[in-house]
């Protein structure tokens, strides 16, 4: 699906836990996330701590969208 969005001319960032699969499907901007059933959260933390993590990860995704890439890139930070 990311590839089709990219093909339509929109920059897209893929946020997912199993990044090798994201590489296989051809995402160009990739942000690794926490876990399969809760990519953007962590139920072991308090609501506020969880939001902090989510803020950080979404922030990273926005950074990826404003960063020029030439090839598939994983944004670890």
């Amino acid at each position: 699906m990311v590839k089709e969005i990219e093909r339509a001319g929109l920059p897209v960032v893929h946020m997912c836990t199993v990044t090798p699969i994201s590489m296989t499907v051809g995402a160009n901007r990739i942000v690794p996330t926490i876990a399969i059933p809760h990519p953007l959260g962590d139920p072991s933390l308090t609501m506020e701590e969880e939001k902090d993590i989510r803020r950080k990860l979404v922030g990273r995704a926005l950074k990826a969208l404003t960063t020029e890439v030439e090839d598939q890139t994983i944004f670890e930070e």
Binding site: M1, K3, I5, R7, L10, V13, P39
Partner: peptide, 25 residues
């Protein structure tokens, strides 16, 4: 999956969207 995204990507484009965040589990 290809068909879904190709379709809604056009809708997004026509609606003036500039970029997409896709999340996967």
């Amino acid at each position: 999956a290809k068909k879904f995204a190709a379709e809604y990507a056009q809708t997004l484009k026509n609606a003036g969207v500039d970029a997409v965040i896709m999340t996967s589990t």
